[in-house]
Computed example of a mutant assay.
Amino acid sequence: MAQCEQFTTAVDGVVSRMRALDATLPERDGVAVFNRVYLAVTEAVDRHIDGGRFPDARAAITLDVRFAERYLAAVAAAEERRPPACWRPLFQMRRHPGVRPLQFALAGINAHIGHDLALAVVDACRSLGCEPVDLEDEFDRVGDLLVSLEERIREDLMPGPDLLQIADPLTHLLGSWSLERARDATWSAARALWALRRLPELAEEFTERLDAAVGFAGRMLLTPLPD
């Protein structure tokens, strides 16, 4: 029981850090938009864990915390202008007036799911001394929660019918990206990285290419739109 409480405290810790970050950022800032979305996701995962909806709470908490730490590390690296390539577009475009809140939210989700989650699975496996297959249930449950929240995010942040001149190109742009496809690709990437763990040079090359590819998708998602 004490060990479970220790892990739960770790979730509370990353939630507290995201709340503190939210308090320091302007509301319209692109990182702030994503941070609010991700904070809601992390709080929802925490509630699901508390409600016993994850068969292995320790595994779910470990994956959740390692996942969040990847994002928080990117925020810290951005302060020194050294964020991973997958996060660079969001930090570069965070104040651009032609980028809509929904674009910021999905670009952050793209970076975090497409790159960070694969590495977080490997991090969690190392911490727990297990294989990726042992975390597949937790991975799928977190992914299902993200998919359900993505629909709500699109509804909340999509411009209204009075802004169809914006919504039409926005709908076209964002229709090219799918959280479901990104999640499937991430699971394959996590398994590949785990298989390459004893080949550090190849693992590093694979990680760099994944980082760059996800960053390219993020840059497309953040294409400025006309007023």
Rank of each mutant, 00 (worst) to 15 (best):
L128V: 15
I49Y: 07
P55I: 09
F91V: 08
H96G: 08
R53W: 12
P84E: 00
Y38V: 06
R95A: 13
L63M: 11
I109K: 11
F67K: 00
L146Q: 02
P132R: 04
R95M: 10
A60V: 01
A32P: 04
V65Q: 04
V75H: 02
G114E: 03
A78R: 02
P84D: 04
A76N: 07
F34D: 02
L119Q: 09
D50H: 12
R94W: 01
G52Q: 09
L102F: 07
N35E: 10
E69T: 08
A60K: 08
R95Y: 04
R141Y: 12
R95P: 00
G129E: 12
V121D: 09
D140A: 14
Y71H: 01
R100V: 13
L119S: 08
R66N: 06
Q103A: 10
L39R: 08
V31N: 04
E43L: 10
L63I: 10
L102S: 01
D116E: 09
D116Y: 06
P97N: 08
F139C: 13
R36P: 08
V65R: 03
A73C: 05
A105S: 05
D56Y: 12
R126K: 14
L72G: 09
W87D: 01
G108T: 03
M93A: 14
A44W: 02
L90V: 02
F34Y: 14
H112V: 01
S127A: 15
S127W: 14
N110K: 13
I113P: 07
A120Q: 04
C125S: 13
R141K: 15
A32F: 06
T62P: 10
P101C: 10
S127K: 14
L102A: 09
V41F: 11
G52K: 04
H96E: 13
S127V: 15
P89D: 01
D123L: 08
R47N: 08
R66W: 00
H112M: 03
A44K: 09
E69K: 06
A78L: 00
Q92V: 13
R152P: 00
V99T: 01
M93H: 13
N35S: 08
Q92Y: 08
L106A: 09
T62L: 12
P132M: 05
H48F: 07
R36V: 05
R70H: 09
A120F: 11
P97Q: 04
A111H: 01
R47L: 10
